[in-house]
Design a protein around this nucleic acid. Structure first.
Lengths: 273, 273
DNA sequence: CAACAACGGTTCATTAAATGAACCACGCAG
DNA sequence: CTGCGTGGTTCATTTAATGAACCGTTGTTG
């Protein structure tokens, strides 16, 4: 592991829920030496990636990242195109919606929107999403290249008792996504969290990321899941459109058969409008 | 210079105007070895700070910075409180407005807003603003601690013929700001760009940053400068308020005397309302 | 109060990791 | 074909990262 990686990895311990961290605290989290960690922290501080609370001496993310985020958005303006559909999705479902974007074989969380309907809700606060344990990740594995599957198999970290940690269980989850058109994670990454995800495409024609809804597991009913899936298809369409891509025909037909009544059901219903 | 600094310094070469850079190009810009640069680039890529255009092999800012920017905003939500007054300021003046924030002795650009009134306008695309050459920097030097002045004197890089590169010229600029309440940069950082800046305060009671308007130098008239100064005072008040601070009385009175007629002028005008 | 623990920060001999000249392989223009 | 400019790789040399032990301060506790 290079110094650069070690230093920057420190940044990943900061989150919305843990926005300020002291030196010792950070040493424990990163499982690293105090002197080394201190030097990394001061280096990052000098670069504007961290700054120190003058009172508590704790560190927090610095202002330099804001400019970089601007440049990113100006270069690849994906976030703008995701936020509107995302907010709508969160509103419609009353849950937390988020979008992730693939960079190489790593899936990065990019934007999220929380509904205020429920007092308990999923909180998305991650930089990278594990491919094997999240609905979004399963989506990418189902509709992305085989290279991703190899990357996923090389790191089957167990997060909960439900995390698929064997090739068999992972392949089962992937097969389910390929059959239904949605990635699913039933308490596989965090206890109590149930997620559904749909693939998103950009101008390259390849899968570019995923849009997902995370809910409290105990709240999910078949009807609720159906509503989420309907919202997801709409959001996936819109975000893909905004990113210059479109949902492949084959996935659209998958969604059709998953969400809508079979031809026989239609025959029964159409006569009575 | 630490490896961390060297690697991350590469990121500073990316900008809105130069969003994608190849390996060789980056070597020239950073004046560094190709092998080393390459390793740094791949390290940053693995961390999600960069990603490679699969077609051109050029590098661009990666998705990881978006999440960090989110955490920064959640921790120190200054940008939110700056954007609304900033947009108003840009609209009122028809120029480019921007806000910078002090972190240690480094002044970071944080947010900007461009008016669409003129076809030529200043483009703000910097991570850090030099203290001695920008209106915002002069503002910080005039109303901030002496520590800042020492930091500024240790790096009097000349950017244009007008850049104050001697202690005398810098002190003159600082004195002017102390007298008038506004920082000024007349083509001192970029040719053709004239800027005015006002200090912004936060809950600590110390100067926290500056709000500035950058204009094309040839467009500036005394009237236009006066209008900009009026806009700046309003924006500085609002942003300071949003950041939990307020403009010190002494600066408010400076602005009064700079912007409004003297008591004799008032005596002449009041009788005829 | 004194003893203690936990904190941020520093030192310096040891060691591991960063470095860069020289090296491919490829693509393109003349 | 040659010549030049890419992105990417190798390996002996050297430079910079490392961490156990240290200091000074603060806040807690029997």
């Amino acid at each position: 592991m290079s110094v650069v990686a070690k230093a920057i990895e420190l940044l990943s311990h900061f989150s919305v829920r843990r926005p300020e961290l002291g030196l010792s605290q950070l040493c424990r989290l990163a499982k690293r030496d105090k002197a080394t960690t201190y030097r990394h922290l001061t280096a990052l501080e000098a670069l504007g990636f961290l700054e120190q609370n003058p009172v508590t001496k704790a560190y927090r993310i610095g202002p330099a990242v804001l400019h970089l985020a601007d440049v990113r958005e100006a270069t690849v303006p994906r976030r703008d195109g995701a936020m509107v559909p995302l907010r709508l999705l969160a509103e419609q479902t009353g849950e937390t919606a988020h979008v992730s974007v693939l960079s190489g074989v790593v899936l990065h969380a990019m934007a999220h929107s929380e509904s205020t309907r429920h007092s308990t809700r999923a909180v998305i606060d991650l930089q990278t999403l594990p491919l094997h344990a999240t609905a979004s990740g399963i989506c990418l594995l189902a509709f992305g290249s085989d290279e991703l599957r190899h990357a996923a198999l090389s790191n089957l970290t167990p997060f909960t008792p439900n995390t698929p940690t064997s090739e068999q269980r992972l392949d089962a989850a992937i097969a389910a996504a390929k059959a239904g058109g949605f990635g699913e994670s039933d308490r596989a990454f965090e206890d109590e969290i149930y997620s559904l995800a749909a693939p998103v495409y950009d101008r390259t024609g390849e899968i570019a990321g995923a849009v997902a809804v995370a809910s409290v597991a105990s709240r999910i009913t078949p009807d609720a899941a159906l509503a989420i899936k309907k919202g997801l298809t709409q959001a996936a369409h819109e975000i893909s459109h905004n990113w210059g891509g479109s949902i492949p025909e084959e996935i659209q037909t998958l969604w059709q058969t998953t969400l809508h009544p079979t031809s026989r059901d239609i025959a029964q219903k159409v006569p009575t409008p």
